[in-house]
Design a protein around this nucleic acid. Structure first.
Lengths: 225, 225
DNA sequence: TACAAGATAATAGTAATACTATCAAAAAAC
DNA sequence: GTTTTTTGATAGTATTACTATTATCTTGTA
């Protein structure tokens, strides 16, 4: 059996949550609880009760809930980039690669694709609803210096690199990619909660396909030379 | 002298802040303080100290700080839609109108364009950094039912309507507009704090122009029939 | 000018949040 | 089998997010 381990920036945690059973429960149950309560209403006290431990024990792993969120987000992007590489092995055509990246970016994240008990759907919902809260803060610059946004940046860079290969004359590959990734995150949220902001219809069986169409359409129209 | 008054959804406040001097100080100094501290670190207590009043008095106007933020955001979008109408009076060509809308959306908001002591630049920074926090919450649906997102939706609808006029075959006008508005908000934030996510260079003298180029480029490429 | 209505200030108080500290018990590593 | 590390239990603090009460200060109006 092969199990892949995802190592994240050590500045994210005080004690590595992958190194003990309690640590990993903090992460996996943290995902479920943030998904259920929303990040604002989530507290370490509630999490501790949930996992039958104490607040103080949770604080031994993460400095605060913002750092825990950063950990989860970094986990997601690191995992996604691994998926990018895995599913494009031996493929060289940048257009084909790009298509696979976009498919991965806009498709449902099945739980069983993830390892070690992480609820992929919950993590994906956290991505949609909470991702931007990780950097839209007054500590962006400090956090950024510690490198906590590298996994996301790396994903952007990878896609932007393909765009540059496909059309070297296009002047805004990174801006385009960051725009479309955010949009992919938001459109399904709109579909569910603010439907007048999108044509995508909320329907868990079909909306991933619609999202994929939309993002693909924009991307193709914009980068065609 | 003509002064335009902006009336907002009454469910946003407990007592209309435009009806008393204290109320308006809460709004105008609230803008400055949220801009300075960030929404997370902003409290009604700090605001009360700032304006030489008390926490209890602030609470008489707004139920909580989230409602105050909604008020500010609604103020912004309502004001922007007014600008849209004002600057396109007697213009009928949808392409020309669209260009003006995009110019307004991506240009610097000068303080003196606003009325009644509102610091336009601070409000604009709040838009960039805090807007999404108004709807990325567990109470979206409740807030939405009260109509607090109508000003933003109305702006989206207006732009989407033009796109439909220009190219009736384009299937995603609303999704495109919501994508680009968010992007316009974020790209300058990236330019300043996470520069590897965008080609736009942080430079208050020039980056509005670059942003305008970027958004205009995407829009034109995407909606051309 | 007087006085009633409404707005504000001052003060107090509560429950929850976001932590930090200490120490003993339990688990693990050697 | 003991030392080190990890956890649990408990306690405590400062801040946040409110609510309530009453006294005072502005008004609008008669």
């Amino acid at each position: 059996m092969v199990s892949l381990s995802i190592r994240l920036n050590a500045s994210l945690y005080l004690k590595d949550p992958q190194q003990s059973a309690l640590g990993w429960r903090i992460v996996t149950e943290g995902i479920r609880l943030i998904d259920r309560l929303g990040f604002e209403n989530f507290t370490f006290k509630k999490l501790a009760e949930e996992i039958g431990s104490t607040e103080a024990s949770v604080y031994r792993y993460f400095e605060n809930k913002h750092r825990l969120l950063l950990y989860l987000i970094d986990w997601y992007w690191t995992w996604l980039e691994y998926q990018f590489d895995y599913f494009t092995t031996n493929i060289n055509d940048p257009r084909e690669k790009l298509k696979i990246y976009i498919n991965l970016l806009t498709s449902e994240k099945k739980s069983d694709l993830y390892s070690n008990g992480i609820d992929g759907q919950a993590l994906n919902r956290i991505m949609m609803a909470e991702f931007e809260k990780t950097y839209l803060t007054k500590q962006v610059d400090k956090d950024n210096q510690e490198g906590v946004f590298l996994p996301f940046k790396s994903v952007c860079k990878k896609i932007a690199g393909l765009i540059r290969q496909i059309n070297p004359a296009f002047p805004y590959p990174h801006a385009l990619v960051s725009t479309l990734i955010l949009s992919a995150n938001h459109q399904l949220f709109y579909a569910e909660h603010l439907p007048s902001l999108t044509e995508i219809q909320f329907n868990p069986k079909k909306h991933y396909q619609q999202l994929n169409d939309f993002i693909g359409l924009i991307l193709n129209k914009v980068i065609q030379p």
